[in-house]
């Protein structure tokens, strides 16, 4: 891996790790805000924002996005850094991340509203968890979910020069976030509904999304066939993993042995 790629991966890993630490330490304050606890309905949006403060709502979502979503951006960031002029690397990556984050802050807040409305309508968190799990099952069995996921793999060409280059990186970030939102929304909602287990649920959902992002696109189809395929692929990756790690320690060995 190139050094500049390693630096990007390092920065992303640090951001994500910091996000998780903040979530862990500040959980009692942040998680209720993220999940919209204390809401009684849509009418109390203003009351909720007044109590928590809009900056606090956005900041809480910012922490969540940093923790859960930034690792999903690695392929895009590497691709962008490879495809712009050297002096444009940092601005383009920042513009992309900004576009991505902006979309998610808004979308995440909408998820909060959705969760609040849902939990207000249902008797307890267990019921909300079951309902959102059902939603996951349905949404994931539709071809559109796979389409959104596939779109996350698409790296569109970027303009090369001037402010236009940063603007295309920004819109590329928004678009990627939109695809990502379509692919991640249902499991995110489920994680929010897990009551006392919100944090572990978020971690599990994040791990699921990260692995899915590594896997190649699948042909969109009806039913959960693609998830079975994903499970098979994860199984294969787990079994063949030694092949990839061992090689790191014996760099030139394998090539010679097979030559």
């Amino acid at each position: 891996m190139r050094k500049r790629h390693l630096r990007i991966v390092g920065a992303v890993a640090a951001t994500s790790a910091a996000g998780w630490v903040v979530l862990l330490l500040g959980g009692p304050i942040l998680l209720p805000v993220i999940c919209g606890e204390g809401w009684t309905g849509v009418a109390s949006v203003e009351a909720f924002v007044a109590v928590n403060g809009l900056p606090a709502v956005l900041a809480a979502h910012g922490v969540m996005v940093a923790a859960m979503m930034t690792p999903l951006l690695v392929p895009s960031l590497l691709s962008i850094s490879d495809r712009v002029f050297a002096r444009k690397r940092l601005p383009a990556m920042l513009a992309f991340s900004l576009g991505y984050a902006a979309f998610w802050l808004v979308f995440g807040s909408l998820l909060t509203v959705a969760h609040a409305v849902l939990s207000a309508a249902l008797p307890n968190w267990q019921a909300t968890a079951v309902a959102t799990a059902g939603l996951c099952l349905v949404w994931h069995a539709l071809p559109w979910r796979q389409r959104f996921l596939n779109r996350c793999h698409v790296e569109r060409p970027l303009a090369g020069h001037g402010i236009v280059a940063d603007a295309t990186a920004l819109t590329h970030g928004c678009r990627t976030a939109a695809s990502c939102a379509g692919a991640c929304a249902a499991p995110m909602l489920f994680a929010m509904a897990c009551g006392p287990f919100v944090l572990p649920a978020m971690l599990a959902v994040a791990a699921f999304l990260w692995i899915e992002r590594i896997l190649p696109p699948e042909r969109p189809g009806w039913g959960l066939g693609n998830h079975l395929r994903t499970a098979r692929r994860i199984g294969y990756m787990a079994r063949s993993w030694p092949r990839f790690t061992r090689h790191v320690w014996q760099r030139h060995g394998a090539a010679r042995a097979h030559a």
Binding site: I214, L215, R232, R233, M237, R243, H247, A254
Partner: peptide, 14 residues
């Protein structure tokens, strides 16, 4: 390529 991702790959399936 002397790269595990090529030699051992692809990663997702044989």
């Amino acid at each position: 390529p002397d790269d595990a991702r090529w030699l051992g790959g692809p990663m997702d399936r044989p």
